[in-house]
């Protein structure tokens, strides 16, 4: 029943550990090397005039611009303005979406009442509601936060609903046979059962929320990263525009990574499963032990 090999065990274990480290190291090197290669290609092309340095300033110039804008606090101001819309909108939309999705998941009545409506609204590009929000709430921060919240709400709601509905009926049956109900059913069965889908929804929503907040700032704001990008275009300052683009990209990556960490922490049982397309060494190692 032991999962350790019986003979020559030490050596085999060391080999397996070395293999896993090699796989991880190779992934890290590849992940860094490819972007670096692309950047140096760009730098060379811009400096030699292969591409128009006016439209595609070399990365070194963008980096210098980024350093300058960071130093004088301009970039920090735009970032703070964007985060001030993104985070409240995201939290609001995520909470409302998860609660609504959950309620619809457990209530047949709510599902019947709201399902078709939400299905129709889901396909509406949420950014298209911005003019309406501006009309209702004026030019303040509220419509911008709400535009983000609406986007996040629908993605989270639909994923949460699917997550609750897709909980294995055999697991539900078992829980019922042991008399699980009320708060205990929620804590031990429904919440953990739906959690993977909820987190998938939250991860998708992060990307969309960044898209929407930038789009909102394009048209209805005089600060924020979206404004920085749009304004740099009208002033023909591509170097500033790239600073905005890079910052938005990094922001999205950081938020996604934070959610990925949260996911690993919240769903420890998922780590037990081997990844779908693992290198063959990993697959061999991850085989379940036989009793």
């Amino acid at each position: 029943m032991s999962i350790r090999p019986q003979t020559g065990g030490e050596e085999a274990v060391h080999r397996a550990v070395r293999g896993a480290r090699r796989d991880a190291a190779r992934a890290a090197v590849l992940g860094l090397a490819v972007p670096l290669l692309l950047l140096s290609g760009w730098e060379a092309a811009a400096r030699t005039g292969v591409v128009d340095a006016l439209l595609f300033p070399p990365p070194s110039r963008i980096a210098a611009q980024l350093a300058a804008m960071t130093a004088d606090g301009e970039l920090g101001g735009h970032l703070a303005a964007t985060l001030g819309r993104l985070l409240p909108g995201y939290v609001l939309g995520a909470l409302a979406g998860a609660l609504t999705g959950f309620a619809m998941g457990v209530s047949v009545t709510l599902r019947a009442a709201l399902g078709p409506l939400f299905a129709a609204l889901y396909c509406l590009p949420k950014i298209a509601t911005l003019p309406l929000l501006l009309l209702v709430f004026g030019l303040g921060e509220t419509p911008k936060v709400l535009a983000v919240a609406i986007t996040v709400f629908f993605v989270t709601q639909i994923n949460t609903l699917a997550g609750v509905r897709r909980i294995d009926t055999r697991v539900l049956e078992t829980a019922r046979s042991y008399g699980a109900s009320g708060p205990r059913l929620l804590r031990f069965v429904l919440l953990p059962g739906a959690a993977p889908a909820i987190l998938t929804g939250l991860r998708t929503a992060v990307g969309l929320a960044v898209v929407v907040v930038v789009a909102v700032e394009f048209v209805a704001s005089d600060n924020g990263l979206g404004f920085l990008i749009w304004n740099s275009w009208t002033l023909f300052r591509p170097d500033r525009m790239y600073v905005g683009l890079v910052t938005v990209a990094v922001l999205g990556a950081v938020l996604s990574a934070a959610l990925a960490v949260a996911e690993r922490w919240l769903l420890p049982w998922q780590a037990a499963r081997p990844p779908l397309f693992a290198p063959w060494r990993t697959l061999l190692r991850a085989r379940t032990p036989r009793s």
């Binding site: 055999r170 697991v171 049956e173 078992t174 829980a175 046979s177 042991y178 031990f188 069965v189 953990p192 059962g193 959690a195 769903l267 049982w269």
Partner: peptide, 15 residues
């Protein structure tokens, strides 16, 4: 009063 054992185990993967 009763405890069930099902063919498909009914093990909760997240516990």
């Amino acid at each position: 009063p009763v405890a069930f054992v099902f063919q498909d185990f009914g093990v909760l993967p997240w516990l």
